[in-house]
């Protein structure tokens, strides 16, 4: 990436230039603040005609991210555009951490909890961030 984005890094794998090791810092003011989240990003053969495959490797309590780390984000699915770049994709993921959307869930149980008792859900998200995303 030409201009680095604060809180995001993407480093290509040594043996596979299509595979990126990504680190996203939990955004300030979100329950993920202070956490460091690892993701993997893979550019398929068809890229940029089809979206990169992105997955959280660090466990995270978020209504749009399931326990396998898969992300529900429109631009990774039906709203993909070939004008989008790795940079814009990762910015969108960072924005998703700031603005969870329980009405379009991927992890149903988490989304349910988020809707029933948002305060409790945010507490759990903070707890998970401390447990899984702060180990260093």
């Amino acid at each position: 990436m030409a201009e680095p984005v604060p809180g995001i890094s993407a480093i290509p794998d040594e043996s596979n230039a299509r595979y990126f090791h990504v680190v996203v810092a939990g955004p300030e003011g979100s329950p993920f603040e202070g956490g460091v989240f690892k993701l993997e990003l893979f550019l398929p053969e068809e890229y940029p005609m089809s979206a990169p495959k992105v997955r959280f490797m660090t466990k995270i309590y978020h209504p749009n991210i399931d326990k396998l780390g898969r992300i529900c984000l429109d631009i990774l699915k039906d709203k993909w555009s070939p004008a989008l770049q790795i940079r814009t994709v990762l910015l969108s993921i960072q924005a998703l951490l700031s603005a969870p959307n329980p009405d379009d869930p991927l992890a149903n149980d988490v989304a349910e909890q988020w809707k029933i008792n948002e305060g409790e859900a945010i507490k759990t998200a903070r707890e998970w961030t401390r447990l899984y995303a702060m180990s260093g």
Partner: peptide, 10 residues
């Protein structure tokens, strides 16, 4: 959208 629960075959 509601498309996220479907498996996307590629």
């Amino acid at each position: 959208m509601g498309n996220c629960l479907k498996a996307v075959s590629s």
